[in-house]
Write a protein that binds this DNA or RNA. Sequence first.
RNA 1: GAGUCGAUAGUGAAGCUUGGUAUCAUGCGUGCUUCGGGAGCAUGUGAUCAUGGGUUCAAAUCCCAUUCGACUCACCA
Length: 476
Amino acid sequence: MPLDNPKSDFSKWYSEILLRGNIIDVRTPIKGANVILPNGYEIWEKVKEILNKEFKATNHQNAYFPLFIPEEFLTRESEHFDGFVPEVAWVTKVGDTELKEKFALRPTSETIMYHMYAQWIKSHGDLPLKINQWANIIRMDTKETRPLLRDREFQWSEAHTCHSSAEEAKLQVEESMKIYEALFDALGLSYLTLRRPPHDTFPGADYSIAYDSILPDGRALQIGTTHNLGQSFAKVFDIKFQDVDGSTKLVHQTCYGVSTRVLAALIALHGDDQGLILPPSVAPLQVAIVPIVFKGKSEGVIEACKTLEEEVKRAGYKVHADTRDNYTAGWKFAEYEMKGTPIRLEIGPRDLKNNSVLLVRRDTGEKIPVNRDELFTELKKHMDEIQAGLKKKADEILDGFIVDIDDFEKLKTRMQNERGFARVNWCGDVACAENIKDQMSSEIRGTREDVKEEPTGPCVVCGNKGVQRVYVAQAY
RNA sequence: GAGUCGAUAGUGAAGCUUGGUAUCAUGCGUGCUUCGGGAGCAUGUGAUCAUGGGUUCAAAUCCCAUUCGACUCACCA
């Protein structure tokens, strides 16, 4: 059966497609802690593969740090601690014994990692230090959980770097932006690179860059962040090095991460009423081969499928010939569409006679008869088109959600109805930002970091001189 | 943290007002016929009706408590 809920009813569509598309099963006994199903997990593994490749190419190393964090670590950087308190889960008891000092289950790993960094870094020769960790993260306070969008336990990548100068740290921030651009391109995601306003930076950081995508219901989704931490953590965790001139200095730090939220964006931006649509670059299965058999006319069809499977595999694609006879061809079509497989190849008696296969594209639904001799040229061509087409469509969705607004009431109406991103002028006053938050449950997401944008008029809230062009949106 | 609603096979629902053998669809198993867009028929399988207590000859149904969940608002680096 197709999805019961159309994409136009996004909330229900999203819940349904997660299970039907074999991405997430929420029927666990723990709210907000779900099963990542094989199809979903393979996509996540692909995300890891892409990022690991980028990390290796830029001299990052992978490592793993403890899940447990002593309470005292979290309290050391008080701003950092206050930012996380409401959502930290604590281990207070082991067996029947109450612990003297309780452990937090990491809501993020700065403290435990920097405690180690302080012991590792002695000299300028130890810098830069660039370490990434793949880990699970625990954030409990959220009563309103949504699979992949807001979980109590989720998977992520967090990279933490140390440098000898502020200038180098700034360059590192830029490098991270390039790394994420490569990832988001592979996923076909569109997004805005925004510098968060000062009142919304990561606790303890100098400034934060965030990558905001948009979901079909018009809400912004942060799919990654980069923080320039400056020296605040270095100060409290005492991360120092001896420089070439013999003096002792504090390191400059950055950190950046992406989580399984990127899967949510992937699903929401590309999927349709038939199910998932996956870009070839991350699809667990790229080509599904379905035999068309009739009673008395099926000789050679199954064999032809298996031969074709071998050939397609040798050409470098992830392929499966589905020769099961307990499902009809139509059922299989629908099934691979639900799972998002980019291309389906059909072979029946007609194709055997004509030396052809029927190529069907998941993104457009086009059915294209292809001569066997031209199959691989065609496969390559359509894979490339699908990859580029999905990105283009995502860009159009994002563009469609961006509007310029210069009137407070209009902004309010917009945020309460279509939502999306509103580009407005802002005076920089936190009171005005609060005003927006209070009156339309939306927030100032920041200024563009990838392109320079100048204010074009007075502040949309107070009418004083606008000093920044900012984007307002309701967020997940 | 505030409010509203809810919990019945794997999934989705009906039954509750008026107490009495739990119904339907889908899924799953088996057999036959099928197969160029989620096949048809037959026959099986699967629910101590969220938990605990109360009323009653009798509770999915009425009462009380608890737990969990959904949604809206607040919060969400």
